[in-house]
Amino acid sequence: MRQSSPSPSIQVVKLRQLQCLCAVAEADFNVSRAAVALHATQPAVSKQLRQLEEELGLDLLQRYGGRVIGLTDAGERTLVFGRRALQCVESIRGLTQESRGDSGGSIVLATSHTHAKYVLLPVIRAFTRRYPKVRILVRHGGPEQASDMVREGKATVGVISIAPRDRNDVLAVPFRSYRLVLIAPPGHPVLKVKTLTLERLSGYPFVLIHPSPLGVHVLEKFKRVDLDVDVAVEAVNADMAKDFVGAGLGIALIPSFAYSPRTDRNLRGRDAGHLFDPVTSSILLRRESHLPRYVYDFLETVDATLERRRLDSLIFSQDP
């Protein structure tokens, strides 16, 4: 166990050392894989990690048989601050590029398949015409995964429905609400029911989008009134649910933006907004971070309410 060194030694911690610590954590503590990501050799990364521990006077890494297997408690805390420091450096670089008038860059979006296809696709199409030098990268994930990616700086923006649990370092900004639509194949008995009720719906096999916050939301609604749901099959997203419904496997509830009578000709839809709370879409942003001008333009293309002045007031607010 290392003895703590006097605090002045912390002043000589280098960004490269923090980069190595973060890279090793992101590589599941595989130092060789982290070295590849850093375009460095494995011995060089190991040396940077040892030097960081020596500078801080702390054991940051758990080792077994000469291999790194995890982080100590001190390592976990150092990783949080290390990521934050590297994110601040990226923000400074962004300010520099913006002051030079650079129009190139990238936007990494953490989102679901359903949001990517039905909400973001037309936005990306319009945006890339205006900013041909900006690269768009889409990373798949649910609310919690998207929040983690934004928090860790792996994604610029998260676009999700049903915001994840509160986190002081990630900001969730709602921008649009959607009603749920019940979909069924043509001729299904549920389409002839005059008034839809939860009790009526519980009598038919369901295609449930699960695991997902939407699926949990639907199940909880039935559970509150002591009704069971006959889940015939689970689908990972709205498109798969539509395919299963079209094949006659059951009925499903999906966000209204994912259903169109014009394109979904093998399905029929009925509004179910009176039975379920609307689905709210939100963007996720890292607090106290600099966003390039083109990111603000992208967000305002997503929804007019996501304008720069409003977002800045939230990103840099002292109240989490």
Score class of each variant (00 low, 15 high):
Lys117Ile: 15
Asp264Pro: 13
Asn30Arg: 06
Asp319Gly: 07
Ser5Phe: 06
Leu18Ser: 07
Ile10Asp: 07
Gly250Leu: 04
Arg309Thr: 11
Thr41Met: 09
Ala146Trp: 06
Gly65Cys: 00
Glu55Lys: 14
Ser5Trp: 14
Asn168Lys: 10
Leu227Ala: 10
His39Cys: 07
Gln19Met: 03
Ser177Val: 08
Pro132Asn: 03
His290Glu: 12
Ala74Val: 00
His290Pro: 13
Ser147Ile: 04
Glu76Trp: 01
Gln19Ala: 06
Leu121Tyr: 02
Asp28Tyr: 02
Arg67Ala: 01
Met240Pro: 00
Leu219Lys: 06
Gly70Lys: 03
His217Val: 08
Phe276Glu: 15
Leu214Asn: 00
Asp297Gly: 00
Met240Lys: 12
Ser4Asp: 13
Leu21Pro: 04
Ala23Ser: 00
Thr305Asn: 02
Val225Lys: 14
Val138Thr: 15
Gln145Asp: 11
Cys88Met: 09
Ile136Asp: 02
Leu58Thr: 03
Leu56Lys: 09
Ser177Leu: 09
Ile209His: 07
Leu109Phe: 13
Met240His: 10
Ser289Met: 13
Gly82Arg: 06
Val190Cys: 12
Ser46Gln: 13
Gln62Glu: 06
Gly203Lys: 07
Tyr118Met: 05
Gly65Tyr: 00
Leu71Cys: 00
Ile251Ala: 09
Val45His: 04
Val36Thr: 12
Gly153Glu: 05
Leu291Asn: 07
Val36Cys: 02
Arg165Ile: 09
Leu58Gly: 00
Ser4Phe: 06
Thr301Glu: 15
Arg293Lys: 15
Thr263Arg: 11
Leu137Ser: 11
Leu21Cys: 04
Ile124Pro: 03
Gly248His: 09
Pro185Phe: 06
Gln62Ile: 00
Lys154Gly: 02
Arg308Glu: 13
Tyr64Val: 03
Val13Ser: 01
Thr78Gly: 01
His210Pro: 04
Glu288Asn: 14
Phe206Ser: 12
Leu71Phe: 04
Leu60Thr: 02
Phe175Ser: 14
Pro255Ala: 13
Leu249Ile: 14
Gly57Ser: 07
Phe127Asp: 05
Glu90Ala: 07
Leu291His: 13
Thr111Tyr: 01
Ser4Pro: 14
Gly203Gln: 15
Phe298Met: 09
Ile315Asp: 06
Gln11Met: 08
Glu144Met: 13
Ile162Asp: 08
Arg268Leu: 05
Val193Asn: 08
Gln97Lys: 05
Ala116Val: 04
Thr41Gln: 10
Val218Phe: 05
Gly158Arg: 04
Pro6Arg: 08
Ala272Lys: 01
Thr263Val: 11
Arg293Glu: 15
Ala40Trp: 03
Arg308Cys: 02
Ala116Ile: 00
Pro261Trp: 06
Gly65Pro: 00
Leu249Met: 14
Gln11Cys: 11
Gly203Val: 12
Gln48Ser: 13
Ser147Phe: 02
